[in-house]
Design a binder for these strands. Sequence first.
DNA 1: TTGAAAGCGATACCAA
DNA 2: TTGGTATCGCTTTCAA
Lengths: 335, 335
Amino acid sequence: MNPTIKDVAKQANVSIATVSRILNSTSAGYSEKTKERVQAAIKELGYKPNAVARGLINNKTQTIGVLFPDVSGMVTSELLYGIENVTHRLGHSVIVCNTSSQGKKTLDYLQLLSEKRVEGILFASEVLKDEYYEAIEAMKVPAVLVSTKSQKHPLPYVKVDDRDASYAAASYLIEKGHRRIGMLSGSPKDIIAGLPRIEGFQAALRDYELLDQGPSVFSAEGFSYEDGMEMFKKLRSEAEDITAVFAASDEMAVGALASAYKMNVKTPDDISIIGYDNIKISEMAIPPLTTVAQPLREMGEKAAELLFETLKTGESSQNIIMPHRIVERESVKEL
Amino acid sequence: MNPTIKDVAKQANVSIATVSRILNSTSAGYSEKTKERVQAAIKELGYKPNAVARGLINNKTQTIGVLFPDVSGMVTSELLYGIENVTHRLGHSVIVCNTSSQGKKTLDYLQLLSEKRVEGILFASEVLKDEYYEAIEAMKVPAVLVSTKSQKHPLPYVKVDDRDASYAAASYLIEKGHRRIGMLSGSPKDIIAGLPRIEGFQAALRDYELLDQGPSVFSAEGFSYEDGMEMFKKLRSEAEDITAVFAASDEMAVGALASAYKMNVKTPDDISIIGYDNIKISEMAIPPLTTVAQPLREMGEKAAELLFETLKTGESSQNIIMPHRIVERESVKEL
DNA sequence: TTGAAAGCGATACCAA
DNA sequence: TTGGTATCGCTTTCAA
């Protein structure tokens, strides 16, 4: 068994109360001499305070729970990096949960986290269903959304403005001289990352009076590489005159790149492509991908900071719109 | 405050002992009738058992700690996926730690995990220094290494045989008719992923009597995309007659691909490239990358299973060498 | 400056 | 089938 505070007390010939005071450097309450004696005992026994017991009495576990739809995703990893970073800096730990976008699993996790008495919840990259919100509410701990938001439920969120970012992507293409522009999008039924990006894209076309030149939005189910390949093929067969493409994720963009390569259409000479996210693969693509960057790590950090602030002050925080920016690489050509 | 077992007991007009029995479905000890009454009370109050209190008395926290050098790495994410998967299936949680390969941070984390009384440790993708081992030993919980190993310390590990896998990569190239083969490696000082891969590569060349045809191993500090680009350039300038390259990681291989593209040398027509890992980018590369696959998710799963087995049986487990296999895509040409 | 003791929310033993 | 109670390892009054 691990030594307990009792063992330390015995070893140092003091009461456990005194040991506790020294452990927590409670303002005074002991002499320098006993402090040294106790510390010697601690070292000698290799004593480590039991955080579980502390948690029970303080009602503080110093840990938060984070829910992701896919922990192996490239966007996820970057968010997690940022989250873990500030969480650790603030002396807390993070429990990761992989929901696989399944309602049951998500609810299970929430129940688990609740029993484990985590002090807060970070919910990432997915639609917040009513049941999730209710479960979180029932936990009576603060929660913040990352890379997602909820119209209906008043949880603070940290994200980029998808509509604005997409508008920027389309505008960028237009300003580079492109007039016939297509989009590879996620599902318009996806209210978080699907529809808003489509709307932003179309708003730009409208503002530049470039709508009505034929079909321009090609929607897949998701945002994967395969989705990108497939939709790009479709785009080429249904609207061959398109000179520039906005893909709603970098993975899709890379899929489009591959698809183009196979069809022997050159990027960016025959077709320009701009992505969305700025994950690692975008620099590694051939050619390196111009993309709308989300500051993913910072988003993770900010979300964690927000959560801890709420934890500390008790007052719930505001939403944060993080800045997007266009990272110019080599996949878009000026016309 | 959350309702406690006391509240439930009061509400159902029974003792807390009875509530506890029902919660844990302890064999009998209560009638069907009281059971229903208690469950009704639980539902009504929205009672959730406090895992912290349980942990204190059982000395079981149902959580493990996992240490990674970089949680945002692509290999890491896959390992984590596997780990999280079985950990959750077995009713436990995982606390992720990002050590940044720093000794101090690692030791800090170990101390933290120890105080939190995690039931086990998974240590991934990095050299196990003596101090780490000692800290883990002091925790008196089982630990297993993933994608790394230790000669010196008797911790079970789960990994691919790097030497064999590299031997296979080189052999594959040779059997495709290549005679002048180069390698882009990590540091030979890296005893885990550096040297063994170099040795496996050279062993294959030796067995096929292909050594002594000039310089063939180009070692970088790490395994990154940039390392791959740089070393490939060096390789081309110092050994232009090389027709096939083995890169010690997929990221390096993709860097080589990019570098080749820039130099206008075609893959696989002018030069063949084989990678190592089989992470997602290898399918997305242009051309899709032939590579030596490590079963990363399975490795994570296996490591977690091993850990929990040790936890259950108490007897420490054996090492597991996971099978590597060559995934043929389009970056290697038969000569 | 120090110690005794109550209590955090459960589990499990011993009686009834 | 039930309930009372000691206990897990710690923090925190309250007295001394």
